[in-house]
Design a protein around this nucleic acid. Structure first.
Lengths: 348, 348
DNA sequence: CGTTAGCACTCGCCTTCAATGAGTGCTAAC
DNA sequence: GTTAGCACTCATTGAAGGCGAGTGCTAACG
């Protein structure tokens, strides 16, 4: 059973219409469109075929048809027409992202905001994954009697620090020495390897160093691992209310609760961190709660390294074409900004 | 027109019942209570009096009565019976707060969580207000060719840092000198005064220092000011759905949107930062959107200094007595934890 | 005079029911 | 292969009516 060209055209028309309105579309509505010159009866026949092929679904006996997951998949893969972003949108992204350029986190926040504003969906942004970046240097600074600040400088220019309470006072030269030892061991390694290297490489060192370093490492491991929840920034969580099909309090509540368990979102995004783009439609998601939601993600880079990802989540009937171009442009913009902000040519 | 003792008792009964159920309470319901020995007719008479006195309201002609803002105010000020927190609750708070004790922010997050869990309301927690704490030291550390980390150590033991891009490379001794000059100028001053002091005290210094310091200061001012939104942490934002009266999507949406504009919440909390406890009931709030919500706040201290506040926000019919004791206990716990965590006896 | 029983009345809420209309499938004709 | 026509389906809408919780008022009672 093959699909005719006209049927394909009708399918696309149905998807477009359904994405726009969220209401199952009927044959008569379609037949009135200017670009369709066949009668409603003909369309009905085609629709019946498409339904048989698994591309359309009927919510109930005499409602119109709505696209199935299979249809959306086809749409995303081949049918949809990705147009350029409008001048306004481009301007909006540029201004918003540049305006907020003072801290790394602000870029993340601004991205979330921009995405949700442009797409009218809930946006998810994952902060740069430090475990993917090579370390350049570790520097330990004495802050007060029992506190030191461990500063991690990464090759991309990102700087991260952790405040640590230490059991006893240490003097500055000792910390400097420690910094040097650590830096030597970890330079050009990624965090996971660096941790292993230090743990193993410590065997030969003095016992007093060892205890201190262990504590240092533990704290770091803890604060890195513990970041999973913190690393996910959301935008436009209320946007779901714009969709009539989520006017139901129960449904909306479910969705919003899902967003609160950021670990799930974190997993979704990290898992997608290797692909430039991913589109998960409805049941294609492994998570049952997401069975009628879609997630579209993209990644952003520093120096060619994919270090984080971002995307949107919403009803399956989202405007994939538009979202695709938005994500593409926003991703490119983030790259630009990060390169500029982090001054990544800095190779001291 | 004075209120009899029995009327007061009935009023309290009505408030208690309404807080529990959210349904306007009728005379018959009350007359069936074991602690009330008068007939429904008598109660009706009393209710009529209380309504005249402005303590009760009728949603519509033949519904039961519900408490007015005036009634809640009376309840909070004199009527309510604040009991001790249950052992379970105490244990819950202790465990949760202590479990999360690794970073200052975690304490804030944990507080938000604990509050929302215990109260079933949305909690708001304000991070420590750095502008209220005296500085101890400023330390500037070179991180890479064009980046320095400005570390602010406060008297309470809190440490805050800002990453700054600098126009040209500077050497370590210069930064050390700068750190010393700055520290000397700002020690024991609060941030606002410190800024003024540095701005004015710079007049005599070398031009080259001046430019650098100005940049430093600007960045700090920016990052402190810009914190307003970041400094507010929410918990249990979905809890509003537990209240039948907020089953209406429109209402819930309004509430949730309000929570998104964190600046408003920030203002509310900072304004309440001087009072150990505040209770704003319904229209007592200056913000019209909050006209049928109540906000209860408390403060937490470090070394006797009120440095932050936290509280809950929800429908006017909240369990003020319970909330009061929860806030009191949580406040005390935060103090303990902060003192311990920050090692505030550290007076280097 | 405070309290109580009784009764008519009000009004939101729920259920029922029929009308509406968008949409389909099928058949017969073009 | 396409179209017109027609009978049928079914969610949605709105009106009607019953239900019941609750009130206000009046009269009687101790």
């Amino acid at each position: 059973m093959s699909i005719t060209k006209r049927q394909m055209y009708i399918l696309k028309a149905i998807i477009d219409d359904y994405i726009l309105t969220g209401v199952p579309v009927g044959s008569r509505t379609l037949s009135k469109r200017e670009d369709i010159h066949v009668s409603s009866a003909t369309i009905r026949n085609d629709m019946a075929d498409l339904e048989e092929g698994g591309y359309l679904e009927q919510p109930y006996t005499s409602a119109g048809r709505k696209p199935s997951v299979k249809a959306y998949r086809l749409y995303v893969d081949t049918l949809m027409h990705v147009s350029k972003l409008s001048e306004e949108d481009i301007k909006f992204v540029r201004e918003y992202l540049n305006y907020k350029l003072n801290q790394l986190e602000s870029v993340i926040d601004a991205t979330a905001k921009v995405l949700s504003e442009l797409t009218n969906l809930t946006s998810i942004v994952l902060a740069p994954q430090l475990s993917r970046i090579e370390l350049k240097r570790i520097q330990i600074v004495r802050v007060s009697e029992k506190k030191v600040l461990a500063i991690f400088v990464f090759n991309t220019g990102i700087v991260k620090d952790v405040l640590l309470n230490i059991p006893r006072d240490v003097d500055v030269p000792y910390l400097e020495m420690l910094s040097n030892i650590l830096t030597e061991k970890v330079a050009n390694l990624r965090l996971p390897e660096a941790l292993m290297e230090v743990r193993q490489g410590m065997r030969g060192e003095m016992e007093s160093h060892r205890a201190f370093m262990e504590k240092l490492l533990d704290s770091i491991v803890f604060s890195i691992q513990n970041k999973s929840a913190k690393d996910v920034v959301l935008g436009g969580t209320q946007n779901i209310f714009n969709y009539p099909e989520y006017r139901d309090v129960e449904k909306a509540k479910n969705f919003l609760s899902l967003l609160e368990t950021k670990d799930t979102l974190y997993d979704l995004l990290t898992r997608a961190s290797d692909m430039e783009f991913t589109v998960k439609i409805g049941t294609e998601n492994s998570i049952p709660e997401l069975k009628d939601m879609s997630i579209v993600t993209a990644t952003y880079n520093i120096g060619g390294e994919k270090i984080g990802s971002f995307g949107v989540i919403g009803p399956t009937r989202m405007d994939y074409a538009r979202i695709y171009s938005i994500l593409r442009f926003v991703g490119a913009s983030i790259n630009e900004i990060l390169v500029y902000y982090l001054n990544s040519n800095d190779k001291t």
